[in-house]
Amino acid sequence: LEGMTFNLRHLGMTLVDQPKGEDLSAAAVKRIVATAKASGKKSEKVALKVSPQGIVLHDSLTNKLLEKVSIYRISYCTVDKLHDKVFAYIAQSTLNGTLECHAYLCSKRKVAQAVALTVAQAFTVAFELWQVAK
């Protein structure tokens, strides 16, 4: 309920045309990883906090708030099949409603799995809270 924080590297984001789907997210992660590699830059370190309210991202070095993503805007999360240290989620942009897939590199496969399971738990808790509120 109070949230869990993970230290990850933001690989990047790409637009997707559906809110969910294994093949869709796999293709999106493939694009993000290819772009990140081609750029040659080190991806930025971020602290990703997961709670039933959503995902909050801070820059790990400066502690600057990067983004707050409401749980109601997150449609899907996954650990990529091919890149098994990559955690990704799909969320609807608050600016223009487009769907964005964001990918994060974790130190280990187990960490990527833990992030995905924590987000899934947040989905479940948010759903319970939503039912009660309704």
Partner: peptide, 18 residues
């Protein structure tokens, strides 16, 4: 092993105002 970890959000696009 073809098992993948992926989850759909049951509250996506839902709000308490619905």
């Amino acid at each position: 092993n073809t098992n993948t970890i992926h989850f759909d959000n049951p509250v996506y696009q839902k709000t308490t105002e619905d």
